[in-house]
Amino acid sequence: MAPVLVWCIYCILGIVHSKAGWSISTPEEILGEFGKDVLLPCTFQQPKNDYKGNIEVIWRTKVHFDGPVIFHCVNSASAMSNCSAPSTETSKMSRYSLAGDARQNNLSLLIRKASFEDNDSYFCRVQLEGKGNSWETKRGTNLKVPPFIKQLYISVDRFGDHSVTCEAMGLPLPTIVWVQPQNQNFTVRNSSGNQSVSSTVPAILNETHTCRASNLFGTEERSIHRGVSITIPEGKLKISFMALSGILLGIVILLVIVLIVKHQGSSTKHINVKKSCQNDKDEKPGGIYMNMPKRTV
């Protein structure tokens, strides 16, 4: 009766014994974050402390023993490691790798850039050479990737009205709830797409607006504050931009005209100087002294 009770306790804790000297341990739940790497810990103990043979590592999803294999690694005595992922998708193969050292009884799996499709149950299996020298977790580890708030921003329409929009992603699609401001009766505009949903409410002056996105895998919150600021509505902004562009264009045209007039004035002056010099050369030398009085000695 006592061994059965101990075995049940190990099952509840996620530590399963197959026989004396054998155990494998994994956490019941891991919380990941969308777009970031996540580690699924797995350690084991086996009675052969001086074991030098091959160590085979297998990770499955869905159900233990019969679930689809997502990672397979054989650590041999002749080589440091020889790992392969059975998936035929190259992008999927590169996302899984052995983070632990099988020779140190660590079979932890690293998943790169967690996605919402990674929400699943994961089962770790270790197998040594020889019949019966293997074990796999029965309870597994539940990986949860909660919703991700992609954007939270304040915008102004052409009438000068302020709105705050929250865009969230998740699978299944998350539900967006505005936690703050409280006790406000305003209209909420919602829209949804592929793995994303958005919600827009009026932005209240000097208030903090908190968006909460949640589904069965978790919750995320973000806040934004609308303070006093000088804003230009979208329609007036376009008009202001066109007016500024017209002013700049007028300044450029005026500068071009000034440069042309200045250049023409300089050319006219140069021509007049040349004509004056030419007239001086055309005068007879004797004509200069004819009007001068004669000196007597």
Rank of each mutant, 00 (worst) to 15 (best):
L255K: 06
C42W: 12
A99W: 08
G286F: 04
T187P: 03
S94G: 00
T231E: 14
G67V: 02
H225F: 15
N82K: 12
D101V: 05
Q46W: 13
S223L: 01
V273H: 14
D66Q: 12
V201Y: 03
N190W: 00
C8G: 10
G140W: 07
A213C: 05
S87A: 06
L31G: 05
F159G: 09
G170F: 01
E33H: 10
A99D: 13
F148A: 02
K294L: 08
T141L: 03
K275I: 11
K236D: 10
K138P: 04
Y96R: 00
H17C: 05
T268K: 14
I30R: 11
K275D: 09
N142E: 15
N272H: 07
T26R: 02
W135A: 05
E117L: 12
C8S: 11
D37I: 09
F116L: 00
K275H: 11
V63Y: 08
V38I: 13
V16W: 08
S276P: 00
N82T: 13
A2E: 14
K275S: 09
H263S: 12
V297R: 03
F44M: 02
N190Q: 06
S199D: 00
G193V: 01
I176R: 07
L107G: 06
R125D: 04
S198M: 01
S214N: 07
L259R: 15
S214H: 10
S267Q: 15
D101P: 05
C83T: 06
L143A: 08
S23E: 06
C277G: 15
E221Y: 01
S163E: 09
S240L: 11
A20D: 15
T200L: 00
L237G: 14
N142C: 09
K144D: 04
P172S: 01
L152V: 00
A79S: 15
G132R: 06
R158L: 02
K19P: 04
V179D: 11
P47D: 03
R103W: 11
G287M: 07
L109A: 03
G287K: 10
V177W: 03
L248R: 03
V6G: 04
S196D: 01
C8H: 13
I15E: 08
E283N: 12
G250E: 02
I70G: 13
L128I: 06
K269C: 08
W135D: 12
V256P: 00
N194K: 11
Y289S: 10
S84V: 09
P27A: 07
C11P: 06
W7R: 15
L205P: 07
K131C: 05
I251S: 12
W7I: 03
R112Q: 14
P146T: 11
E136P: 02
V126D: 07
N185M: 03
A114N: 07
T200Q: 07
P202R: 00
P3E: 08
L259A: 15
R95N: 01
E220L: 00
R139E: 09
P174D: 10
T43Q: 12
Y10D: 14
S155N: 11
M169W: 08
V228F: 09
I239M: 06
R103C: 02
V201Q: 05
F44D: 02
G193D: 04
I204S: 04
E129W: 09
I247H: 02
